[in-house]
């Protein structure tokens, strides 16, 4: 396991979250390990269905039937969140760990004013009188860059644009100055110019408040601009993790490489984009060996047969850079063809 520091705020080991459906067991998260440092932005990147959102919900202990956290340890500070009783979890949610979602407008209650929804956070977690709560709410709205916060506190969610609603969500998320903010595709539903505003805001707030952030997104551009540390997920597992610069400059896993090469980059004209053949595997019926093996071109190039037999471990093969791939790992009867 990669240790990029020893000051962990959150430490996840062997997390497995399965969904028991009519068609079989969906292994949405299937053995995930990572750490989040205080004040750090961890980017969790992957395509739809790779398990990044389920990982976030597992941390929040918000997995509902037919889903279940089957295995693993989620250490937040000194406690294992999986072992806490519900009351203690509720005390942590919205207070020490908070979460914001992709669709800000549907995450807000349509019949309560924005100011009252903010005040509710204080009502649950802080001992303040009404006047103090109102003042604090307005102050928060100002912090997240809402113009005319006194007036906007009286507005209903439908009277706000998507960007404004996401600012309100961030204000709610940060109301209690949490140690960890989980942002699940926070800008995916927004236009690029608004996305730039929101990302800017999140970065400023992190610098100011020292909140650690788990930023979940499918957009590699957002990851590159925001994250300090990146974990790439594929079919319920982390396939590569490293600091943001080495990950983009020297991606090791064939999937990471494929992803980076398959996106058009502004200002770089290529005649053709590289593409990854095929589709993401069925999470009910995963391939026997490496989950990526059926789509992997590098495996064919080097003629590796072990990939279809045994799923490799996520292994730190360079300082602070780990990858789950047989190209870089020796095993019995198998010699890694590449040295990083």
């Amino acid at each position: 396991m990669t240790e990029h520091s020893d000051q962990f705020l959150l430490k996840i080991r062997g997390l497995k979250t399965y969904f028991y459906t009519e068609d079989g067991v969906v292994k949405a998260v299937d053995g995930v390990d990572f750490n989040v440092n205080r004040g750090e932005i961890l980017g969790l990147v992957g395509e739809s269905g790779c398990g990044k959102s389920v990982t976030a919900l597992s941390i929040m202990q918000l997995i509902r039937k037919p889903g279940k956290i089957v295995e693993g340890k989620i250490s937040f500070g000194s406690v294992n969140l999986r072992e806490l009783p519900l009351e203690d979890i509720q005390e942590i949610r919205g207070n020490r760990i908070s979460m914001i979602f992709q669709q800000p407008q549907t995450s807000l209650n349509p019949v309560i004013t924005v100011g009252d929804q903010l005040a509710e956070v204080f009502e649950i977690h802080a001992d303040l009188n009404n006047e103090e709560m109102r003042e604090k709410s307005v102050e928060l709205l100002r912090t997240v860059g809402i113009a005319d916060p006194e007036q906007k506190a009286l507005a209903y969610p439908h009277e706000m644009s998507g960007g404004q609603a996401q600012r309100v969500m961030i204000a709610m998320g940060l109301a209690m100055r949490p140690e960890l903010l989980i942002a699940d595709e926070p800008t995916t539903a927004l236009d690029v110019t608004i996305q730039a505003q929101i990302l800017d805001l999140m970065r400023d707030l992190r610098n100011e408040l020292g909140t650690a952030v788990i930023l979940i997104t499918h957009d590699l551009g957002v990851i590159a601009e925001m994250a300090d540390w990146v974990a790439v997920m594929y079919a319920g597992q982390i396939v590569e993790q490293a600091g943001v610069v080495p990950l983009f400059d020297k991606p090791l896993h064939p999937y990471t490489r494929g992803l980076i090469n398959s996106i058009p980059v502004l200002g770089e004209t290529k005649h053709r984009l590289a593409d990854i053949d095929g589709v993401v595997p069925n999470l009910v019926d995963l391939p026997k060996g490496c989950n990526f093996a059926p789509r992997c071109k590098a495996r064919k190039k080097y003629g590796l047969s072990i990939c279809e037999e045994i799923n490799p471990d996520l292994k730190e093969i360079m300082p602070n850079h780990s990858v789950r791939c047989w190209l870089y790992q020796d095993a019995e009867d198998h010699k890694a063809p590449l040295k990083p």
Partner: peptide, 11 residues
């Protein structure tokens, strides 16, 4: 618009 687009080049 161009400057708002996140570019996947952290360096």
């Amino acid at each position: 618009l161009m400057s708002a687009i996140p570019i996947p080049k952290p360096s």
